[in-house]
Design a protein around this nucleic acid. Sequence first.
RNA 1: GCGAAAGUGGCGGAACUGGCAGACGCGAUAGACUUAGGAUCUAUUGGGGAAACCCGUGGGGGUUCGAGUCCCCCCUUUCGCACCA
Length: 821
Amino acid sequence: MNEKYDFEAIEQKWQQRWAERDQFRAAENPARPKYYVLEMLPYPSGALHIGHVRNYSLGDSVARLRRMQGFNVLHPIGWDAFGLPAENAAIKRGVLPEKWTLDNIVRMRTQCKRMGWSYDWAREVATCLPDYYRWNQWFFIQFFKKGLAYKRKGLVNWCEKCQTVLANEQVVNGACWRDGSQVIQQELEQWYWRITNYAQELLDDLSKLENWPEKVLTMQTNWIGRSEGARVSFQIADSDRSFDIFTTRVDTIHGATFVVLAPEHDLVKSWVNDPQYGPALTEFVDQMRRQDRLLRTSEEAEKKGVFTGQYAINPYTRERIPIWVANFVLMEYGTGAIMAVPAHDQRDFEFATRYNIPIRQVIQPSDGSAVDISKGAFVEYGTLINSDRFSGLTSEAALEKMVEYAQSQGFGEKTVSFRLKDWGISRQRYWGTPIPIIYCDKCGTVPVPEKDLPVVLPKIDRILLGGSPLATIADFVAVTCPNCGKPARRETDTMDTFVDSSWYFYRYTSPRVDSAPIDNQAVQYWFPVDIYIGGVEHAILHLIYMRFFSKAMRDIGLCALDEPVAALFTQGMVIKEGAKMSKSLGNVVEPDEIVREYGADALRLFIQFAAPPEGDLDWNEQGLEGCFRFLARLWRLAYRWIPRLEGVDQQADATADRRERALRRKIHQTIPKVGHDVERLHQNTAIAAIMELLNAAYEAEDQGGVRPAVMREALETMTLLLHPFAPHFAEEMWELLGHRETLWNTTWPQDDPELAREETIEIVIQINGKPRSRFLAPPDVSNEETEALALKDEKVKAALEGKKLIKVIVIPRRLVNVVVG
RNA sequence: GCGAAAGUGGCGGAACUGGCAGACGCGAUAGACUUAGGAUCUAUUGGGGAAACCCGUGGGGGUUCGAGUCCCCCCUUUCGCACCA
């Protein structure tokens, strides 16, 4: 054994052995309980960053612990390999996306192996390979057949910088989620997936996700945005046309003094030629189209609009009210049209005030108190007034009754509106999955027959810019119609890369099946994912898409899961000096450099020790050194003892010495603590507990009188407990301690509660709630004895001098509070 | 504005259902070993005080024998949502 902790040699040695033995290979085994540990797959951007290290080290410690606890562990990894950065890098550096991506994967795979994570590399998937993306295409076709995929023209989010369309989830505060640049609205024909079919189920099933963070559930609930209300049809005056509005407050409809359409509303287009109102209307609509969405939809934005010259008939009152177009009504929510009740809606109030539109109160507080409608809207529920036959009803009752009335008269109905929109999956980029559709002049839109899959992404030899790059590849576009055999054209858009990540974790269970996307038997064995670890930034992106995907997979008869992920854990960011690491700030920590200087084990240890995993972690090199020192300190202890341990069994005899018993007690207290902490992902306190155990071993050594058998037990226990965090170190130590079997196949130590039990306990004496004294007692001391012992205490006697004993509270085995007064 | 989470030594952070606040690590101080130490080991390390003691978990109230933990009000930070009809 080397006196010095030579992390480089040790880590290399074990990585090599693990690879040679193909040690982390997983296979279905019905005899053992399974455990599926999943981490969000990385985008191959070039190199692992420290956030990956945190994410994957966390997952690895869980995988290794569960394995040692007897679970059959699946711990896979892959690459989210399609996507824009590859194309952008290609444009910037002149490397083709494919080469750039595959090179990055090679480099990052090496880095992963250098970190010692226990991945089953035989299950690795890269989403940019035809073996994988052909199933994206297969899913597309199944969805198309099932009516879950459809094409329509409509307003879409267009990112100028990315030169492509984005789904709603990918627009954050009016900006592109990836680069933060402005997103504008454009009218384009796009493919959509009908995620809204599942809106209700996606919402309802959130209640099944008991082990998901509340925060994510809330974000999803808000994103789905269910609201119950009514659809009411308004006739356009002097016309046979009508339009629908959506409202959650039909009870206020007698107070509607105007209606408002979104600038993008279809009806508006037919009015722009009006000689009197057309010009202003046209200008307003154009202005809205040009305006930044973020500005337009911000609450601070002033409410602006123009009168269309048209009137609508309120079906309840038969009253003619003006139709306006205004910035604050959004085409994408509800029906893109609202009734405006300025007395009872603040937005309508502001608008009405600005344009001198009448304000009419129709609700008053049910307690009869007065409200001043001239100062602002009264938005609460109350009692209806000025509402014809509905006057006198409460809002709650009116909501029911008035919808029934509308229904009976045929001009409205009860309806539910969702904020969630269908998922726009078309992307006008090269580096993605080709959408498997063929357009034939005769047969229309025809899916590519399954036998013709995959539609291979054509190789290119130069970078393609602008539009849909595939459209410029004549060989690709030209195709014969699978129906009629006549010349036809291929769809040239590619799929959103969130499609790839929506089901990759299914593919891991059967990565090489080539007759179907998944082997249902394998899915049945491994699913659900027991723990999914990743960043919270995907709360309403990936994490909602993949839930949708599972349900859609179920409905096309592929497997039978409602929810694929049993527990989700969102880990915090790694920051430095309080700021997010970024190249522009120059505060990026390179994992490679840390590994070179301190080793992967020290890095893994530190990144899990420095902070609880759900919070942000402030990188600090000195803390890292502390973890390195801990490993070196354990190494030295072993170095001193191992020569004396040969042939010594750890359970040689019952130990009688007080000092030995103290060390063994610490050992047997630490074992359950570490296991329990890692199960809750409290790696920081688990590691602290192992450090304490090492300190106890040093203390025991220092005091003398500890025999090798006990020191062996201490060293072996620390080694086993350390394995999830510092596996190379632990494997080496385990071997030095004389074991042949890898720790991966070794069981987690069993604690002995008998040995863990304290021989004497210290009981605190409080006087009037303040700690004043303490005494030692046997652990089985009764409450009566405890009280008696406390009352004999000198401090207690002194405190009772001239005072009265009011009461004594005994907390068994912990504390006595003597109340005097 | 609405909602959620958080606020504990010089620093990162511990503290299960209310029961010794500050585990563990960093940093710091002193000593030992040493030619030397940025290595290692030992000891000390929330503040005040000579001490008995007193004060301390963002601030203010409250419940309780007892509050970092529970309740009310306020402040700050972070993160979501933000004209959603």
